[in-house]
Computed example of a mutant assay.
Amino acid sequence: MTDEGSDTTESRCGCKLGRVSERYDLTDLHDTLISYWTGDADEQRSTRELATYVNQRVLETALTNADIPPREGAVKNTYRLLTSDDVTSGTRVQTRNELQRDGVPVEQVESDFVSHQTVYNHLTKCLDTAIGTPSDEEQLERSTEKLGALQNRTAVVTSDTVERLERKEILEIGAFNVNVSVTVTCEDCYQEYTIRELLDQRSCNC
């Protein structure tokens, strides 16, 4: 007798996350996402954190399928090298080449990575899941992550530019570091804060 319950959400869902979960046989993924997002698990996670979770599981499965047993911490580190804004383009290319040589279909894997918006749409539309309005702390955390990513990206682009000009002998410089700092000045009290200080403090000294 056929069990109608075996018609999983993966096979009914036509969105990208549904197709990816089916392609990589992530049969428990949907229940896990709901549990993490709604806070039924030990720790509630944002959709951005859930996108990272999904993508790392995709990468882990791809490594396993290529007969590369993932060592402890290797999946997270490889994912960081492939996606993080603070990784130089040269390091990212080297990581892709090494995976390709080991039989990992890197282009397919990267195209299967999902965004936090895809996760949100899947949770709310495909899985009919909802949570309350994000708390102040959650909104601050997301803002801090977003601004931090922008600063890291600016630093990487600057570093790549300097290295390229140095290779072409247009610029001369020794070993260098790039630091990006964003400050906010209150026009009432003229107090200046880094953006992280302001978000942590949540007010100026007026």
Rank of each mutant, 00 (worst) to 15 (best):
8 T>V: 09
40 D>C: 06
164 R>L: 15
71 R>A: 13
189 C>E: 02
156 V>T: 15
146 K>I: 14
140 L>C: 10
45 R>Y: 05
122 H>Y: 04
97 N>E: 11
46 S>R: 08
88 T>M: 02
96 R>E: 11
74 A>Y: 01
174 G>T: 07
17 L>I: 11
125 K>Y: 03
62 A>K: 00
47 T>G: 02
148 G>I: 05
45 R>W: 05
205 N>I: 12
118 T>L: 10
113 F>N: 03
135 S>K: 11
36 Y>H: 13
55 N>A: 04
151 Q>M: 12
16 K>H: 09
3 D>T: 14
153 R>W: 06
178 V>W: 07
96 R>G: 01
36 Y>S: 05
36 Y>N: 07
190 Y>F: 05
88 T>C: 00
195 I>G: 00
186 C>E: 08
76 K>W: 05
39 G>S: 11
34 I>R: 15
98 E>A: 08
197 E>C: 02
133 T>S: 13
139 Q>D: 13
187 E>M: 13
201 Q>M: 06
54 V>E: 02
109 V>M: 02
88 T>D: 02
171 L>C: 07
140 L>M: 14
147 L>I: 15
120 Y>M: 11
188 D>R: 12
175 A>S: 14
101 R>Q: 09
64 T>P: 01
87 V>G: 00
101 R>S: 06
69 P>M: 03
135 S>M: 08
21 S>E: 02
33 L>A: 03
93 V>C: 00
168 K>T: 14
90 G>K: 06
85 D>W: 01
145 E>I: 13
173 I>G: 05
36 Y>P: 01
72 E>S: 11
164 R>Q: 15
17 L>V: 12
16 K>T: 05
97 N>H: 02
169 E>I: 05
109 V>G: 01
192 E>M: 06
12 R>N: 08
201 Q>V: 07
157 V>Q: 08
41 A>G: 06
66 A>V: 03
126 C>I: 03
81 L>Y: 05
150 L>V: 14
17 L>W: 02
71 R>F: 04
8 T>W: 04
2 T>K: 09
165 L>F: 11
75 V>E: 01
71 R>W: 03
181 S>M: 11
59 L>R: 01
77 N>Y: 09
170 I>A: 14
124 T>I: 06
126 C>M: 04
153 R>I: 05
91 T>C: 00
42 D>C: 04
94 Q>T: 08
126 C>S: 12
30 H>F: 13
165 L>T: 12
144 T>S: 15
61 T>N: 04
149 A>K: 12
177 N>K: 14
193 Y>F: 13
181 S>F: 09
119 V>K: 02
89 S>G: 00
9 T>C: 04
146 K>V: 14
170 I>F: 12
5 G>A: 10
87 V>Y: 00
197 E>H: 04
48 R>Q: 09
123 L>G: 01
96 R>K: 12
3 D>H: 11
158 T>N: 08
164 R>N: 15
48 R>V: 09
185 T>F: 04
133 T>R: 14
203 S>G: 07
117 Q>N: 10
102 D>Q: 09
191 Q>E: 10
88 T>N: 01
88 T>I: 03
116 H>S: 13
10 E>M: 10
73 G>L: 07
97 N>M: 04
151 Q>V: 14
42 D>T: 15
111 S>E: 11
11 S>T: 14
44 Q>T: 11
159 S>A: 15
13 C>I: 06
188 D>W: 03
31 D>I: 09
170 I>P: 00
200 D>P: 00
135 S>A: 13
